[in-house]
Structures are given as structure tokens and as C-alpha cells.
Write a protein that binds this DNA or RNA. Structure first.
Lengths: 341, 341
DNA sequence: TTGAAAGCGCTAACAT
DNA sequence: ATGTTAGCGCTTTCAA
């Protein structure tokens, strides 16, 4: 049997307006009445009807704010595609998505972006941001104010966010290591690690997972050097060239962040295209390198689904479809080779 | 600006009732008026509001019929999970899903199942069925009657179905071949193919894609023998044992259908666990074999998403959200190894 | 053949 | 602090 606001109102002996006030915590209701209604709602298993709400309040849509460090980072193109897909799909159910794009990872800039979204009246936020104390505090504060916060692509530790939507970086790294163990082209892998930044949790996890899997699978290897690209192709190319020239023995390059194109350029320049090169994420330029056989395989993380499901989760939370305890949405760890790009 | 039935009614100088009759082809409307309204709807880019329709007609939900040959085939467990997820999610938008499960691929049984779904008033059908002339004709007939038909997991050729939701079997086979080319453990692969049935298009495509990729990537190989398991573990085990005993040189087993567990049992019995064994789909028992290192990798096809999106597409078609020309929904071809199972 | 009106579940504005 | 009412977009009577 369907339970509606009317059902609850009749059962509690109050008007529908009062029930609405209680369920949304707006307006003042006598505490004992409020409690009675809340109990009733739980007992009856009341779930709001999305169609009803959408129709009634479509002139005051749920505003969902999104923050992405997407300027100058093609990775987020697919995330944005997913966001737009969800935006269109849910538009007639009454949502409005405000997308705020920033460049890089400046704490102040991120904090200000969050503030501006809140000021615009967003009742839910989907954030791809940095794991630093200031942001952590800000997020917890927002949660306490009843704003739904969802972390996208990168989690922020120790927060009361609703959930995380993104990939499992450790697993992604481990999958790389496991793949290498199956190839076993050479007796020992001498590895150059080109990471984006040592400050990026995801990048570090990709390295840790990788090393652990190599160890677990009995692959003999050593990390010759680890360089940082700051996610820049030019820096990646320079540092890769330098390392490869200094260490003739390197027979494997492991790229954890952006700058893949730069690494590819270095490999081509030195004619080391037979060397085992591995990277993450399917940017257009990266795919080209796989097709050319320079990168042997990549691990991807379904960025489009991340964007889509972040918005979907935000809507579901605002519409009362899901409770305050939800599982994280972890996207698949996908191995891509020439054949299934 | 939003275009509603009211907008159209005013523009055409008729009542909302008339517009509704035209848009849904029910009741009689003067042809010239009907044409005028249809033209207007197209010009204005009218898209029905799902919430409005759901609310108004929630006592007469869209009935969506589903046919799966899922009895005795664990593969479909995940498909059903996806169907149920969509069912719940769209329930308050007014859908009702009727699931019909059959065993195997008997044409008459499938045809009767389809009939019973239609008789129950289903206005959309999601079918996982066989590619034979009788079914083809039946599907086309249903399409002409205005019933939305979506093929799931296996397509039926030359039909006017709305779309196909499932995997690209050829690509899946090619991905296997490409993986093998990267491993290159042995100078030449002597392959035993254990297929489900030569009558299954998908199984054949998995073989064709595989051979082509091996050829394209310059892998030297020969197909020692091809046996049919009829998707039975017992038959698969028997035939695999026989083939491996007769042909000592076999160093690769390629399993295109069900019966993976049977093949695994044979490999264990003969202690040929180092041999390169490859299979499809992540049934629980298959995953166990991967974890045990007996199957080296598997290729999966996101069955849960297939179930979910079949229902979603059906709803979207019935609700007028998508037109009669939609792209197929092809799920990803996913490589699973121990690390990312 | 067409129009008018009621009502689905919910929210917001207004009234008490 | 609580009740009442109107109306969102759509479908479905019932009436003309």
C-alpha cells in the first residue's frame, strides 16, 4: 500500500500542511506532534513521491552545486558529460545544477568556490577537491547545517559527507601490478615512476597498490626513480627524458597522473617504444598512445558515471529517496588495451 | 521555456483534452486539427513532463514485460538485479514490470511467453531470446502494433526493434585475442575451443573476434578442436577431459559459453592448471577459478547494467522521452583479472 | 468531435 | 502553532 502525506495526516489527526512542516523541518510544530508524525512516518515506511514533489515545487528546484578543478584538465570532460546527462534527465523532476570550474588545487580558491555555491542557495554539493584540514572543517560545518555533501573523484578523509563517488585508486594500482605479473616479459622490472604530485592521495595510492601487487605476485622489480610531473606534459617529458638517459636499465615506466602525453613524447624521442609503459585514464591523447602501441595498457575509472551518479545521489538525498547512510559509489577498475578502448 | 499541454492547447485554440487525444492517438479528433496539433508539438519541441504523467496516471502504470531464459542459468542473476533496481527506482514514476522466466531456447516456449506478456497488457517488451525467423516475424508484428520492443543481451537480426541493450560479442572475443598477444608465454598457442552452442550468435562472434585479433596481432596459433558444451558443466568437463587427453599439445583453452566450472574441473583433474585458460562472464564459480589462478582472466559484459538500462529505455520510450530512433546501448567489454574482480 | 472539470501527491502562501 | 487552499502537468471521466 502506498503511504502518502494524506495517510500520515489522517493517522496523526493533523493537516497535511503540518506533516509537510515536520518532514522538512520548516515552520514551527509542537514537539510532541512532530515526534508522533516522525514515528508514524517511519512505521508506515513513508517514502515521498518524486512526481508529486517535482510537480508541486518545480518553480523552486533543488539546487545542486558542483565544484571541479577542471580548467585545463581534460580528464574532467567526461565527468562533465555525465553531469549534463543527469542534469537533463532529472530536469523535469525539479533539479538545477550549478557548475563551478576552477584551475588547480589552491585551497583558498576552492573554499571560495564552495562559499559562492552555498550563497547561491545550493542545498547539495558535489565536490572534487583537496584533502586538507581547512576543507575538511568546512565540509563538516556544511553537513551540520543540513547541506548534502558528496565527494566526487577524490575523497576527503574524516568528513561527515553523505558518500564518495569515484574510483578505488589502490585497487587500480594493484590491477596494474597484477597485469605486469602476467606479462613477465623481462626477468626484472626496473621501474621509473612518473607521478602527478606526492600531495595527491590518489596518486600515492596508485603507487602503493602497484608495489603491493608486484610483491604479492612475486614479480622481481625495483623502483629506479620517482619523479613528479605536476600533471604537466612538458615537465613530464623533460623529467622522463632525463631519467631514461641517466638510467639505461629502466624497462618500465609507470605514470600515475596526467602528463601521459609528455611521457609518450619522451619514449618516442628516445625510440624506447618497446619498453613497458603503463598509465591511467582514457584521455584522447592517451588512447592514441595505446593504439600506437607505445602505452601497453591503461586503467580507467568511468569518469562519466562518476559525474552522473554524483548528481543522481544528490537528487535522491534531497528528494528523501535515500537515507543519511549510503554506501559509497565505487566505479569499476577497467583495463583497456587496444581491442577494447 | 517549458512547453506544456496547455501551451499547445492555447496555441492551437483547442482544449487540453483534445491535445492529449492527439498526442496519444486515443479518441477521435478531426484530422486537420490533429495535424495542426502534431505540427505545433514538433515545432515547439514538446516533451511530456514525466512527473505530471506519473501523477495523473499512477493507477494505470506502464506495463513492461520482460522475457529471460534465466531458469538454471546463473548469468541472469545480475541482469535480474538490474531489472529490480530499475523497477524500484521508476516505480513512483508509474511503471510495472512483469518478469517471465523460461528455461533454455525452445522457440515455442519463447513465443508463448511473449504472447502471455502481451495478453497481460504490456506496452513494452524487453526480450532476451533467439534469433530465428518465427521470433523475428513476431517481433516485427508487435512493433507494427506500436509495442516497444527492446532486445537484451542477444540481438535478433533484421527487426524493427527500438534498440539492443547488451554487449559487443565480437569485440569481447577480440579483446581476448589481444590479451593473449600481449602475454606471449609460448611460441605457439594450440587452442581448444569450448563453445556453448554453434547456434548461439554471440558464441560464434566471440570465436570470430578472437581469431581475427590473434591474426591481426601476429600470434601464431592453431585451433586443435572445437567442442560444444550445450552450456552444461558436466558435458563441458567430459569433453574437455577427452580433448586434453587426446591432444597433449593443447596449451590454451578458450571457453565462450557457460560450462566454465566444468572446464575448470577438468583442468584441475589433469593438473593442467598452468595452461592458458580464458572464459567469459563473472559467475561466482568462474570468479573462484580466476582467484585460484586456473582461469587467467575473464571478459565480462556488465549484466546488471543491461537489465537496468533495458527497463530504463522501455520507460523512456513509453513516456515519450526518446524518439523512435535511439542508439543501441552497448555495455563495456571488461577485462577482469585477480586484482579487479 | 470537443470542452470542462476533477484529481493524482506534494508544497507554499495565506488564513486562522 | 496549525489548518486551508490553490495549483504544478497530465490523464480521464463526464457532459455537451
Amino acid at each position: 500500500m502506498k503511504v502518502t502525506v494524506k495517510t500520515l495526516a489522517e493517522a496523526a489527526g493533523v493537516s497535511r500542511g503540518t506533516v509537510d512542516r515536520v518532514l522538512h523541518g520548516r515552520g514551527a510544530v509542537k514537539p510532541e506532534v512532530a515526534l508522533r508524525i516522525k514515528t508514524l512516518a517511519r512505521e508506515f515506511g513513508y517514502v515521498p513521491n518524486r512526481a508529486g514533489r517535482a510537480l508541486a515545487a518545480f518553480k523552486t528546484p533543488y539546487k545542486i552545486g558542483t565544484l571541479l578543478p577542471s580548467i585545463g584538465n581534460r580528464f574532467f570532460d567526461d565527468v562533465i558529460t555525465g553531469i549534463n546527462q543527469a542534469r537533463e534527465e532529472y530536469s523535469d523532476l525539479g533539479i538545477e545544477v550549478i557548475l563551478k570550474e576552477v584551475q588547480g588545487f589552491d585551497v583558498q580558491e576552492h573554499l571560495e568556490a564552495v562559499n559562492s555555491l552555498v550563497k547561491k542557495g545550493c542545498r547539495a554539493l558535489c565536490l572534487s577537491t583537496i584533502d586538507v584540514p581547512e576543507m575538511r572543517e568546512r565540509i563538516n560545518e556544511l553537513c551540520d547545517r543540513g547541506i548534502v555533501v558528496i565527494l566526487v573523484n577524490t575523497d576527503v578523509s574524516d568528513t561527515r559527507r553523505l558518500c564518495y563517488v569515484g574510483s578505488d585508486y589502490t585497487k587500480a594500482g594493484a590491477t596494474c601490478g597484477c597485469m605486469l605479473s602476467m606479462f613477465a616479459h623481462v626477468p626484472c622490472y626496473h621501474i621509473l615512476v612518473v607521478t602527478g604530485s606526492r600531495l595527491m592521495l590518489g596518486h600515492n595510492q596508485r603507487i602503493e597498490g602497484f608495489k603491493k601487487a608486484l610483491g604479492d605476485n612475486g614479480v622481481s622489480y625495483d623502483i629506479v626513480e620517482t619523479v613528479e610531473s605536476s600533471d604537466s606534459d612538458i615537465i613530464a617529458q623533460e623529467k622522463t627524458l632525463k631519467a631514461l638517459r641517466e638510467h639505461e636499465e629502466i624497462n618500465c615506466v609507470y605514470v600515475t597522473g596526467s602528463g601521459v602525453q609528455g611521457v609518450g613524447a619522451a619514449l618516442i624521442a628516445l625510440q624506447k617504444t618497446d619498453l613497458m609503459a603503463i598509465a591511467f585514464d582514457d584521455l584522447y591523447t592517451t588512447k592514441e598512445l595505446v593504439l600506437a602501441g607505445i602505452i601497453k595498457f591503461i586503467i580507467t575509472q568511468q569518469p562519466q558515471r562518476q559525474g552522473y551518479h554524483a548528481i543522481k545521489r544528490a537528487y535522491q538525498a534531497l528528494a528523501g529517496q535515500i537515507g543519511p547512510e549510503v554506501d559509497d559509489f565505487i566505479t569499476d577498475t577497467i583495463i583497456k588495451i587496444k581491442a577494447n578502448l
